[in-house]
Write a protein that binds this DNA or RNA. Structure first.
Length: 487
RNA sequence: GGCCCGUUGGUGUAACUGGUUAACACGUCGCCCUUUCACGGCGAAGAGUACGGGUUCGAGUCCCGUACGGGUCACCA
């Protein structure tokens, strides 16, 4: 057991999307597994039939694979401990529940919803410190139990918590955590529909799947003593626990839908790169202890340790995510970016345009450092995809002077003469025209930018000219001269 | 309310087993570069480590208490 390779699991319930907190949990499990040479297991916890969402499991797996955590043992990649979908393991849970009933660690409870409700109300009225099941069915006589069971009366199976010493366990993130046994309720293990609850299923599966480290969100910390008691009841060795700090809304409450996007799919749809998402989420609750923020998945794998996981919850700060996204864009090669751009092009109004790869690459080259999202290229530098149809009024007012039209026409003539279209030649031509007409370069540069792009910001003018080409530049100059009036 | 966990600039984090003026990044502001914008560079403001005690020559680091925040108390995970 000592030198066993770690086995960890990400055990989401298929809700229809991957929660950003789920991504973080999955990532830490994955990083830990990869870092230690262990195995990352994916298990689908679909024991709540009321929340069944068609196709959710497939969707979850797709997103996980897309984002780069594709190397898992689980559905579609069976190992020796399947099935990996809990709804396909019902018999296993029943066998184990029965085992617990036999040795007295669990019992059948026939109480109606109504009685449970009344009990709860009653206890609340009495201002009891805590609402707990009263073990009513544990104390039924054997005959009554037998009779109810055999007559097919609906029941649940409850864990029988007995008085005893404190439940103490060690958490890798939080060190020692302890709970009094009498604060623990007789948790339902098997629901009346025959499905197990999370508590039973997770313990049984973690044991059977030989999970060595349970790495999950802090919201599970308070139910961990129940799990510890279950391990005890089965006589199983305890896995190591690591409860991760929560991801928080700006107001410090648990990250939720109400206060912004929470699905990984949403962020992907908005144009965040998976690299940025991984990088950002990894830093929420962990750091390598170095003064650096940019990491690739491989670097994270090399650096990750559970010991360096932080204890306090972390606010999800979209601004830093956006910065990281821009950083990851800048780190990509032009060819990689070309793929993204071509992938997105059909979703834009320029889908019918014809843009050769070399053209797009030139445009990307000039815009790379100015993009926060790859799709920004279609907005911020629309002029690469269509000629300007209007001219920014503020820029016109500021840069379009009395002689601008005349000078631009002369510039167009000079451009016309250029045989070899290079940045240097365009620049030289502009300088020459400026000199001959005794004006500063700015008198040409700014009107030129306005004429060919319609706006006042963007890459260097010569870069734009080079990308759209000599002929198109001249066309745009002529068109601008006709449209823009000096006032 | 009970129980559990937490608390370093606005945000994410750093600060080896206690040892000099608490570091880095995002964000903000300013300057430089660029006849634009962005990138980049430089600099600034912003916490004295929730608060109060204690231990110690010395505490963000250890102990106790308080406050505040969060999580959890389902036949949901």
């Amino acid at each position: 057991m000592i030198n066993q390779k770690p086995r960890v699991r990400f055990a989401p319930s298929p809700t229809g999307y991957l929660h950003i907190g789920g991504l973080r949990t999955a990532l830490y499990n994955y990083l830990f597994a990869k870092n230690t040479g262990g195995q990352f297991v994916l298990r689908i916890e679909d024991t709540d039939r009321n929340r069944f969402v068609e196709g959710a499991t497939e969707q979850l797996i797709d997103v996980l694979k897309f984002i780069g955590l594709e190397d898992f043992e689980g559905p579609g990649n069976e190992g020796d401990f399947g099935p990996y979908i809990q709804s396909e393991r019902l018999e296993i849970y029943h066998d184990h529940a029965n085992q617990l009933i036999e040795n007295g660690h669990a019992y059948r409870c026939f109480c109606s919803q109504e009685r449970l409700l009344n009990l709860r109300e009653e206890q609340q009225k009495q201002k009891l410190p805590q609402v707990k099941y009263d073990k009513h069915c544990l104390y039924l006589s054997d005959e009554v139990k037998k009779q109810k069971f055999e007559s097919g009366e609906s029941f649940v199976v409850r864990l029988n918590i007995r008085p005893g010493i404190k439940v103490i366990f060690n958490d890798i993130v939080r060190d020692r955590v302890e709970f009094d046994r009498d604060t623990i309720d007789d948790q339902v293990l098997i629901k009346s529909d025959g499905f197990p609850t999370y508590h039973l299923a997770n313990v049984v599966d973690d044991h059977l799947m030989k999970i060595t480290h349970v790495i999950r969100g802090e919201e599970w910390l308070t139910s961990t003593p129940k799990h510890v008691i279950l391990y005890e009841a089965f006589g199983w060795e305890l896995p190591k626990f690591a409860h991760l700090p929560l991801l928080l809304n700006p107001d410090k409450s648990k990250l939720s839908k109400r206060q912004g996007d929470v699905a990984v799919e949403d962020y992907l749809a908005k144009g965040y790169l998976k690299e940025a998402l991984i990088n950002f989420v990894a830093l929420l609750g962990w750091s390598a202890g170095e003064q650096k923020d940019f990491y690739t998945l491989n670097e994270l794998i090399q650096k990750f340790t559970l010991e360096r996981v932080h204890k306090a919850g972390a606010v999800f700060n979209v601004e830093k995510l956006s910065w990281l996204n821009a950083e990851h864009i800048r780190a990509k090669s032009i060819d990689e970016l070309l793929n993204y751009v071509k992938q997105e092009l059909p979703n834009t109004k320029y889908k019918n345009g014809n843009y050769p790869d070399a053209y797009l690459k030139s445009a990307i080259e000039s815009m790379k450092e100015r993009l926060n999202f790859v799709t920004d290229i279609f907005e911020k530098s629309f002029y690469y995809f269509e000629p300007p149809t209007s001219y920014d009024e503020a820029i016109v007012a500021k840069r379009w002077k009395e002689r601008s039209a005349e000078l631009l026409l002369k510039l167009a003539e000079a451009f016309e003469m250029i045989d070899e279209p290079t940045k240097e030649n365009f620049e030289f031509a502009l300088h020459t025209v400026a000199e001959k007409n005794e004006v500063g370069n700015g008198q040409l540069i700014h009107p030129l930018r306005l004429a060919i792009s319609g706006i006042g910001v963007g890459p260097g003018v010569y870069d734009i000219v080079l990308t759209i080409g000599k002929d198109e530049t001249i066309r745009r100059i002529k068109s601008a001269v006709e449209t823009i009036k000096f006032e």
